[in-house]
Nucleic acid binder design. Structure first.
Lengths: 235, 235
DNA sequence: GGTATATTTTGAACATGTTCAAAATATAGA
DNA sequence: TCTATATTTTGAACATGTTCAAAATATACC
């Protein structure tokens, strides 16, 4: 069931992807119409919809693709560095650079964050796979790094970092400063902050804070992890 | 220039607002069409658009209205309580209850948070007035409370609390648990966390963290405060 | 009241995401 | 090669947010 012959459908799919990428990059997500995409791909509107059920799905495709590239890059980074702060910074910077050309339309993903019902939300159930993949990547990064953190927090670090990283992306998307210098500064400053805070998590008087933090993370997670399991009247 | 005679326009506006509220409540924001609103208000589609330039603007109206109610409620709370934790909790709970009937469609406001260009975003320039109003309310709450926090943090507490509160609302919007018990738990837990953390901000070894935090807040603010002043190539 | 101007209302038209039944084409089995 | 089935393509149609020129109505001034 792997790739045998280049099926016609694959070729058409490619055509649509190529056309949409170009248009999205130039005109952004909203301004690009499905009709324009279909036209540029030399096919009818209906054909485009045969391959991608919604306009959203096109963007989701790039998201998935970039996730794979990040995974690859992560391996490279970890081969050279073990200081987790440096690693995380390199990772964020790579995402930053790699996503630069698609920034104009990639934003829709993040922008829809607040609506868990929207399939485009990074918290929605349709993006769960991608989310878990990203969190797994961070987990891997942490495992292979020198991050020292209280054992109560440890199992939730990857999720926390993922949330943090989503915040950075959100900022980046809306950052209109020249070459996004502000985002870079934010990365530096916030990593500094987190680094310092985490290094304190082993102090005795932090016990309460650590526990509260874990509970909050779990509560947040419980809303995203299984959003489609219908109304869990929990206790 | 105050209310003289009930202008025809005011009556029509009221009719639209009433119709839209009912429809939004029953069917939510997306499912409610402008045509349905116009029909329910006994007027043509174009007339509805004469009073509200976009569908969004209708929701924005309720946002503004509820903000006034919150302000009123805040006065009541502060008259009885001075413990800032209790105050904040009461305030959050009031917002929670008061917004309950509009929860189904009020979410669009928060959901668009990620797109600062979207007028519906609570970070956008079109909602700046409302935002400042809300922050002012929190400022007032803090001033009249017993909150003790490091002087470096003090000037930014209201903004921080506002951000925090937006997070809570975001959670609340998407909380499908029975009677939103999860949101209530989140409020308890996170307030506990913040309370503990803030009470530590005066400790000597927190100096670095405090400073970093302030810088991060300022950086975040710089992206929201003047989003329409065109490309500030800052240093 | 009559006329000029401002306000309000209308309905048609447009753009765009999406659906769908039917047509065209490809594929497999005889 | 011929036929049956599966895949792909098409274009028309629909829903809905939005715009707009023209018509209807109200208001103000004589």
């Amino acid at each position: 069931m792997t790739t045998n012959k280049p099926k016609k459908s694959d070729i058409s799919k490619e055509k649509i992807l190529k056309a949409s990428l170009e248009l999205f990059q130039v005109h952004g997500y909203e301004q690009t119409t499905m009709r324009a995409i279909a036209e540029k791909a030399n096919m009818s509107l209906g054909a485009a919809y045969y391959y991608f059920k919604t306009k959203d799905e096109l963007v989701l495709h790039y998201y998935a693709e970039s996730s794979k590239e990040v995974e690859h890059r992560l391996g490279e980074i970890l081969a050279k560095e073990s200081d987790y702060k440096t690693c995380f910074k390199l990772l964020l910077q790579f995402k930053h650079e790699q996503l630069l050309p698609v920034r104009s339309f990639f934003g829709v993903l993040v922008q829809q964050a607040g609506n868990l019902q929207n399939p485009l939300s990074p918290f929605s159930s349709s993006t769960k796979e991608l989310r878990d993949e990203a969190i797994g990547q961070i987990e891997y990064l942490i495992e292979n790094s020198n991050l020292k953190v209280h054992k109560v927090l440890r199992p939730h670090m990857a999720k926390l970092f993922w949330l943090y990283q989503m915040g950075i992306v959100l900022y980046w998307i809306n950052d209109t400063s020249h070459e996004q210098v502000r985002t870079n500064r934010l990365i530096d400053l916030s990593l500094e902050l987190i680094l310092t805070a985490l290094s304190m998590s082993n102090l005795p008087l932090m016990g309460q804070i650590n526990k509260s933090l874990v509970k909050v993370v779990q509560l947040v997670e419980s809303c995203t992890a299984t959003p489609n399991l219908e109304e869990q009247h929990d206790a």
